[in-house]
Amino acid sequence: MVYLLCLIVFSIGIYGVLTQRNLIKIILSLAVAESAINIFLVLLGYRIKGIAPIDDGTAANFAGAAVDPLPQAMVLTAIVIGLGVLALSMVIAIRLYHRYGTYDITKIRKLRG
């Protein structure tokens, strides 16, 4: 059920990328889609009433109680990568604004596609 929510958020992001005309809004939509995937990854490792995956010897059934740490590690990496892409896309958008004086992609059309 929660996974379905992720899919919905992801779809919202993709919908935004496809329909928005403003460069900044496209970038934000990309960020929304990316967060959806990240949440999905974190949820994969989550278990209800799970404990932090740090084995200090007090938990009786550590492997059975702790949440899965691997998706968390992967999500951290994915977030950093997402940040890099986001920063680069913002820089390109700002440069585009300097060249064209607009953020509207329908007015930025030098190439034939």
């Binding site: 460069l23 896309s89 390109i92 958008a93 440069r95 585009l96 060249r99 064209y100 930025i108 059309r109 030098k110 190439l111």
Partner: peptide, 8 residues
């Protein structure tokens, strides 16, 4: 111009 647009 073209380069930025293509890159985006």
């Amino acid at each position: 111009k073209q380069e930025l647009e293509a890159s985006f």
